[in-house]
Structure formats: structure tokens, C-alpha cells
């Protein structure tokens, strides 16, 4: 592990442990938990967007599949909690494979169309299959997760649970990026043809990273279901897919720490605009457009690059004077 990463993850761990000591209001704790849940989805989605160069507009569906697998299996069939979550994750991965395999074998942006269609179908089914999902009224009474004798039944306990998962997911993503697979993925996003000619099976890697990113979303969805204990189709609509995509872009495509930042900033904006809900769409849209037009590398790297540029300019001016 590089020194930079050790510092980064160490700092993250310390912040996770001590942050709740300073947060007194229950409300802020909830916001932090939502940020954590979004971060998991965004980190996964960023692997797909930033490293495989593919777009998914159906991540709400994978997030929702995680939630509904956990919810339905535990509430309707009395499944044990953790196995239900694992099963949900595997099933979501399998579904993602079925969607991803045929569309990623094609050159071009076919995945965006497939995931778009899939996302909308899943959302309609959530409302339609009432006998399983509770329809538009939602599914209630999902039990909180337990570990040993400890039940994660309040916001503080869930904070530690969710953010442990954030930590693990980010660590997993970092290890993936720095592995052979990660190098292959970066080669693909650099130039698919070049990667292919060097013997990288581009389609295969893209499918794998898509499945992985769907699994991340599923984990987050399961955590959400057990945390809120109530799920309904409106949380998993097309709009959520766009929200997470926005977070990835604002944070920076292909930037791991940017994912955390993107999820944090945009979740806070959503919450700040809670009273004026109608400004949600505009705020997200404007943010997305501004970043894409002016800082296509995301706010973290974008501002850093601007800073570097300004610095070199200053040096040049200084050199001129001398």
C-alpha cells in the first residue's frame, strides 16, 4: 500500500470513529448515514464509469434489488438477516451479468440503453408485484441487522455499521484499482483498441466491473432496508439513478476519494433543499452541467488542477520579472 493511501484510509478510519462524538443532533447523524449509503453506490458506479468508461442509468434498480431481496426474504419468508443480504448481493450480481453480458459485447454505448430500460421495468415491478413487494404502499417492518447480541437499531449504531461498510468497500475498490484488473481497466478507459491489442479482454473486464458495481449497490440497498426498516418503489426510481451518476461526475470520474466527496456534497445539497423540494432538480442539473462543462475531471481534481495551473502561471510571471 502506498503511503498516501495509508494516510488516507487511516484518516478516514479515525474520522469515522470520532465523528459521532461531535454530532449531537440526530438529524445530522441520519444525513451522515445517507451519505454513507450513497457513497457505497457511488464508489461502485465510479468503477464502471471511471474505469470501464460505460454509463449505467439503472443503478437505482440494483440498489432496489438489494433492498427488496433483504426485505422480502426476511419479512415474508423469515430468512436470517445476513444470508438474505448475501443472497441479494449474489442475485443482483447474476442479474447484472445477464444485462451486462449481451450489451457490453457490443462496441458503443449499449449499456446505457439496457440499464435504462431495466431500471424502469424493475421500478414498475416493485409497484406491480403487490403480493411480494407490498406495491406502492411499500414493505414495512424489516428487522434491523444484528451481530452477536447487538442489534443495529438506532442511528448511532447504524452509523458505525454503514460507515464500516463504506470503509471496506472503498478499500476493496482501491485494491481493485491497484491490481492487475485495475491496470487493465485503466488501459481500457485510456484506449480500448490499444488495450485489446495488448491482450486485454476488454468485454470480459467490462462485464466483471459492471457486475461488481451492481453488487456494491445491492449491499448499500440491503443496509438501507435494514436501517430505515421501510422500503417503497419511489426510493428506487429513474431519478435516483441520475442522482448517483451526478455524484460520480461531481466527485470526479475515476477518483476514489472524489466519490466520497461527490456523495457528501450532493446529499447535503439535497438535504439543505429539503424544504424547497422543487429546487432539487434544478440544483442537481446545474451542478452537473457546470462540472461537466468546466471541470470534466470532477471538483476534486479539477480544482487541484486549476490551482496547479495558477501556481505555474505565477512562477512564469515571477520568472519574467527577474
Amino acid at each position: 500500500m502506498k503511503q498516501k493511501d495509508i494516510i488516507g484510509f487511516g484518516a478516514l478510519a479515525v474520522i469515522i470513529i470520532i465523528l459521532p462524538l461531535f454530532v449531537e443532533s440526530k438529524y445530522y447523524l441520519i444525513v451522515l448515514n445517507v451519505i454513507g449509503l450513497n457513497t457505497i453506490v457511488v464508489v461502485g458506479l465510479n468503477l464502471l464509469i471511471g474505469f470501464a468508461g460505460q454509463i449505467s442509468l439503472g443503478h437505482a434498480a440494483f440498489y432496489g434489488l438489494g433492498s427488496y431481496f433483504s426485505g422480502i426474504l426476511t419479512v415474508n419468508y423469515g430468512f436470517p438477516l445476513w444470508p438474505a443480504m448475501l443472497l441479494g448481493m449474489l442475485a443482483t450480481g447474476a442479474v447484472a451479468y445477464l444485462i451486462g453480458y449481451p450489451s457490453l459485447k457490443l462496441r458503443g454505448h449499449y449499456l446505457v440503453m439496457a440499464t435504462l430500460g431495466f431500471g424502469i421495468i424493475v421500478n414498475i415491478l416493485m409497484g406491480g408485484l403487490e403480493q411480494f413487494t407490498g406495491g406502492h404502499d411499500g414493505l414495512m417492518g424489516i428487522p434491523p441487522l444484528t451481530m452477536g447480541g447487538l442489534a443495529f437499531d438506532n442511528d448511532l449504531k447504524n452509523f458505525y455499521l454503514i460507515w464500516s461498510f463504506v470503509f471496506l468497500c472503498m478499500l476493496a475498490a482501491r485494491n481493485l484499482i491497484n491490481s492487475r484488473v485495475g491496470r487493465a481497466l485503466r488501459a481500457i478507459s485510456g484506449s480500448e483498441v490499444a488495450a485489446n491489442s495488448l491482450g486485454v479482454n476488454t468485454a470480459d473486464y467490462k462485464v466483471k466491473v459492471f457486475v461488481l458495481s451492481a453488487m456494491f449497490a445491492s449491499i448499500s440497498g440491503s443496509l438501507y432496508a435494514h436501517y430505515i426498516t421501510f422500503i417503497s418503489p419511489s426510493s428506487y426510481d429513474f431519478y435516483y439513478s441520475i442522482q448517483v451518476v451526478t455524484m460520480v461526475i461531481v466527485g470526479g470520474m475515476g477518483s476514489l476519494w472524489g466519490s466520497l466527496l461527490g456523495a457528501g456534497v450532493l446529499t447535503c445539497i439535497s438535504e439543505a433543499l429539503h424544504i424547497a423540494k422543487q429546487y432539487h432538480i434544478i440544483a442537481y442539473g446545474v451542478f452537473l452541467c457546470l462540472v461537466l462543462v468546466f471541470l470534466p475531471e470532477g471538483i476534486l481534481m479539477g480544482i487541484y488542477n486549476l490551482f496547479l495551473k495558477a501556481k505555474t502561471k505565477k512562477h512564469i510571471i515571477k520568472a519574467d520579472r527577474h
Binding site: I49, G53, I55, H109, V112, I242, V245, T246, I249, Q278, Y279, H280, I281, I282, A283, Y284, G285, V286, F287, L288, C289, L292, V293, P296
Partner: peptide, 20 residues
């Protein structure tokens, strides 16, 4: 990929404005 995302963002701006 950037331009596709940009049209998504623009669509949100337009929709939000229309809603206003």
C-alpha cells in the same frame, strides 16, 4: 460519455425550470 451526461444535466435544468 461526457456529452451524454451533459444532456442529462441539461434535461434536469430544463425540467426543473419548467416545474418552477
Amino acid at each position: 460519455i461526457i456529452l451524454i451526461f451533459l444532456t442529462i444535466g441539461l434535461s434536469e435544468v430544463l425540467r426543473g425550470t419548467a416545474q418552477e
